[in-house]
């Protein structure tokens, strides 16, 4: 996937984030989002104990005891606060984080997420993924439309291990925006020139849409 497509996804999700919201950004595409927020100010939550994460510091200001959840050096925005891991997950699990943006290996038509383990591979890492799926008020998935091997990410039924009973509200890929409800996936916006027929072919789940779909 090209950097351009990754940026397209990040820009579209940036539009969804309300001014003043507390946001948790996962690894990969979500980390690009802060560059596209324009005039909006959001508070970035880092699960290792910081609300109000700022940009990467200058070389001389690096302190490896001020790091992101991806273990990279960071700074603190004005109004930032520090807390311990138990409190950090009170924020997540207790529903105090407005939006979590994360990647996914698969997502089903109702928004159930698989983003921590690949069948047949050793399962030795979960991090905070399941806590976020269980607790964030709103979950947006940032993902390419298909995996590297061409298989669709949006599927009728997960065959990768589930990350929990929490559901995603929205999926943004380089081609489309889907919303999830108890009735299934709805295509609400197209982000590329693909026809709806082609989109259906490269998507592994049935989805509804209201003609004409917003472009």
């Amino acid at each position: 996937m090209s950097q351009q497509e990754r940026i397209k996804i990040a820009k579209r999700i940036a539009k969804e984030l309300p001014d003043g919201a507390s946001i948790n950004l996962g690894v990969g595409i979500p980390t690009l989002i802060p560059d596209y927020l324009g005039d909006k100010k959001v508070d970035l939550h880092s699960e290792n104990g910081l609300l109000g994460m700022g940009p990467t510091p200058a070389e001389e200001d690096i302190n490896m005891d001020l790091i992101s959840a991806s273990k990279k050096p960071i700074t603190m925005d004005k109004g930032a606060s520090l807390f311990d891991s138990a409190d950090s997950f009170v924020m997540i699990r207790g529903g105090h984080i407005d939006v979590a943006v994360m990647g996914a290996l698969q997502i089903d038509q109702y928004g159930e997420i698989a983003n921590w383990a690949i069948p047949g591979k050793d399962i030795l890492g979960v991090g905070g993924a399941m806590d976020l799926v269980a607790g964030a008020k709103r979950i947006i998935i940032a993902s390419m439309h298909q995996a590297k091997d061409g298989t669709p990410k949006l599927v009728d039924k997960l065959n990768f291990p589930s990350s929990g009973n929490g559901r995603a509200d929205m999926l943004v890929t380089e081609h489309a925006v889907f919303k999830f409800t108890a009735n299934g996936a709805e295509l609400v916006e197209q982000l590329s020139d693909l026809s709806i027929e082609t989109l259906k072919e490269i998507t592994g789940a049935t989805f509804t849409y209201k003609d004409p779909v917003k472009k």
């Binding site: 891991s85 138990a86 997950f89 699990r93 993924a129 806590d131 799926v133 269980a134 929990g164 009973n165």
Partner: peptide
Amino acid sequence: PQGTLAERIRCGGAGIAGFYTKTAA
């Protein structure tokens, strides 16, 4: 899960034997 780990340790120190969580259900 990271939050469950933190809370299990917190409970260990707080005299609480266990807790119910949605995480990983």
